[in-house]
Design a protein around this nucleic acid. Structure first.
Length: 301
DNA sequence: AACGCGATCAACCGCAAAAAA
DNA sequence: ATTTTTTGCGGTTGATCGCGT
């Protein structure tokens, strides 16, 4: 092993600053397909000129599909104030009590709105002694709110009205391996009407919470360069370019991941995994593969 | 219309903790 | 048990926007 602490990434030649739509696309596509087991290796495998740390931050604070966007409600603000009184500047702890809100977002809201709104005396008022009765905006106990997100399933699921239900072959372990925990709400037993050999997995709909992104024409040509058949998406034009792009991404990924039939799709994933190991660009590979198999994957509508 | 200023928020930086070797 | 690597956290910065003068 090397001496001393290695830098988190090779800083030279890496992009900094705001993320471009193409970078977002690459990161989303990669994580949805392969997850984020190793942030350090992720940028290279995803073909991103970014530090792993930067990718992680972008995913957690912006691209994660369960991010709640928009202004904080009064209840959320109250919860932040109470929790800050109990926990102090433990933004990640506070964020864990507010599903869909990130530590960064809460920190910003506190520093820009809530801190100055509080009377000076009230800064000390919400003391940790009140923590036993500290409740979130939904009235759950603090202990409950701090439970693992996956264990707060009922609460989380209640906030997710729109989902994608996808039949998955139970005897395709590689498919299950690729299911990101963040994406899976819960497995559902199949109804009697559906095939007895499949299990339905409920994914959060990433389209639901996505911000509007205006897409430069250049991005389409970039995607075209990767041979993504945009026209095949056939998304209604009323959705706007951002929605069109995201819907296209969603459709492509879902179709490639789940829409194909059985073994062919599973074999494709194994091949792709091998390409990743060999240092290829999985996103580009994905798009290229998508094209080559588009005849069987093309949406019918 | 132009300028200055404050507010907002995404992203970066450095450190510490946790995990792995 | 120690060292190295990776991840996560909190503080801070910088770009952008909107409002007032």
């Amino acid at each position: 092993m090397g001496r001393g602490r290695a830098p988190c990434c090779e800083k030279v030649g890496l992009n900094k600053g705001s993320w471009t739509p193409e970078e977002d696309l690459r990161l989303m596509a990669y994580i949805r397909k392969y997850g984020h087991a190793n942030w350090r290796a992720l940028p290279k495998q995803a073909g991103l000129l970014r530090c792993g740390k930067s990718c992680r931050l972008r995913w957690i604070n912006y691209l994660r599909p369960d991010i709640k966007r928009g202004n904080f409600s009064k209840e959320e603000e109250d919860a932040v104030i109470r929790l800050h009184g109990a926990l102090g500047n433990k933004w990640s702890k506070i964020a864990s009590c507010l599903p869909g809100r990130t530590d960064n977002e809460i920190k910003n809201v506190w520093n820009t709105h809530l801190k100055k709104r509080l009377p000076k005396s009230e800064d000390q008022q919400s003391s940790p002694s009140s923590s036993s009765s500290a409740v979130t905006d939904r009235g759950e106990s603090k202990a409950e709110a701090e439970a693992e997100p996956s264990e707060a399933g009922a609460v989380e699921a209640a906030a997710l009205d729109d989902r994608i239900e996808i039949p998955v072959e139970p005897d395709s372990p590689d498919l299950w391996e690729m299911l990101d925990d963040d994406q899976v709400v819960k497995p559902l037993p199949c109804s009697s009407s559906s095939s007895s050999s499949t299990t339905t997995v409920v994914l959060k709909d990433p389209m639901e919470e996505m911000p509007d992104i205006s897409i430069e024409p250049e991005l389409w040509s970039i995607i075209d360069d990767d041979e993504l058949d945009v026209a095949a998406c056939n998304v209604e034009s009323s959705g706007g370019e951002g929605e069109r792009w995201l819907a296209c991404l969603e459709k492509e990924l879902e179709l490639e991941l789940w829409g194909g039939s059985g073994d062919a799709v599973a074999n494709g994933h194994q091949e792709m995994a091998a390409e990743v190991v060999e240092g290829g660009d999985p996103v580009t590979c994905y798009f290229q593969r998508s094209l080559s198999s588009s005849s069987s994957l093309a949406p019918s509508r």
